[in-house]
Amino acid sequence: MKVVFAPEVEEDLYELIEVLIEKEYLGTYPFAISYVEDLIVDIQQNIHSKLKKKAPVFFERYGKDMYYITYQRNNNTTWYVFFSIVEESYFVRYISNNHASGQYIL
């Protein structure tokens, strides 16, 4: 199955590069770009093998009947990838992390 990112998710990932630099989480643009690219590749390569969980009701604003998986990128940050299975694809509808959405994940 292929992985398709919603246009708004692609925009959020692009903006993440700027946030990582502005908030000084990562020091250089090449490092921030690499971080985001690695996250995308990790999702594309591993979404099918990760344990998926039913998304909490709070996240239905991004779509109905969604699942989510987690990626532990470092000791401080866990990414949550919310998606639907549409025909033969994983349709990624929203991406967040424990800093922004951790309180809504049970």
Rank of each mutant, 00 (worst) to 15 (best):
I40N: 01
V3I: 12
V86Q: 13
I40F: 00
H99A: 09
K52G: 03
E8C: 10
K54M: 07
V4F: 07
V92S: 02
Y35A: 09
K50F: 14
Y90R: 01
I69T: 13
M1C: 07
R93C: 06
I85V: 14
F58M: 02
S89Y: 12
S89E: 14
R93Q: 12
Y14P: 00
I95M: 05
Q103H: 10
E10L: 12
I105V: 11
Q72L: 11
Y35P: 00
D42R: 05
E18V: 06
I47E: 06
V41M: 09
S96L: 01
E24I: 02
I105M: 12
F91M: 08
L20A: 11
I47P: 08
Y90L: 01
Q44P: 00
V19Y: 14
F5S: 07
T78W: 01
Q72H: 07
I40Y: 02
Q103T: 09
I40D: 00
Q72Y: 02
K54Y: 07
L16V: 00
A55Y: 07
N97E: 10
Y25P: 04
G102R: 05
G63Y: 08
H48Q: 13
V4K: 14
K23M: 12
I43C: 03
Y94A: 02
D42E: 13
V86R: 11
Y29H: 14
N97K: 03
D38L: 07
L106R: 09
E88F: 03
Y14W: 10
S34V: 00
S89Q: 12
E11G: 02
Y14V: 11
M1R: 11
P30S: 10
W79D: 13
V86L: 13
E88R: 08
I69H: 03
T28R: 11
F58G: 01
N74W: 06
Y67K: 12
T70Y: 01
D65M: 03
Y25F: 15
M66L: 10
E18G: 13
L13Q: 08
K53D: 05
S34M: 06
F82V: 06
H48T: 05
M66A: 08
D38I: 01
G102V: 02
Q103M: 10
V57Q: 08
I17F: 04
Y14G: 01
N74V: 03
D12F: 06
E87L: 07
Q103N: 06
S101L: 00
Y104N: 08
F58R: 14
I69R: 03
H48C: 05
E22S: 14
A55V: 05
I40C: 01
Y29I: 13
I69D: 03
F59R: 05
R93I: 00
I43L: 08
I33V: 14
S89M: 06
K2G: 09
Y68H: 06
R93V: 04
A100G: 00
Q72C: 01
H48N: 13
N75Q: 10
K52D: 14
Y29Q: 13
L106Y: 04
P30F: 07
V36S: 08
K64H: 10
I40W: 02
T28K: 10
I47A: 07
I40R: 14
F82L: 13
H48A: 14
N46I: 02
T28A: 12
E8P: 00
I105R: 08
F59M: 07
Q72M: 06
D65A: 10
Q44Y: 05
E10I: 11
P7L: 05
I105H: 05
I17Q: 09
T77R: 09
K64P: 00
Q103E: 12
G102W: 02
Y35S: 10
N97A: 03
A6E: 14
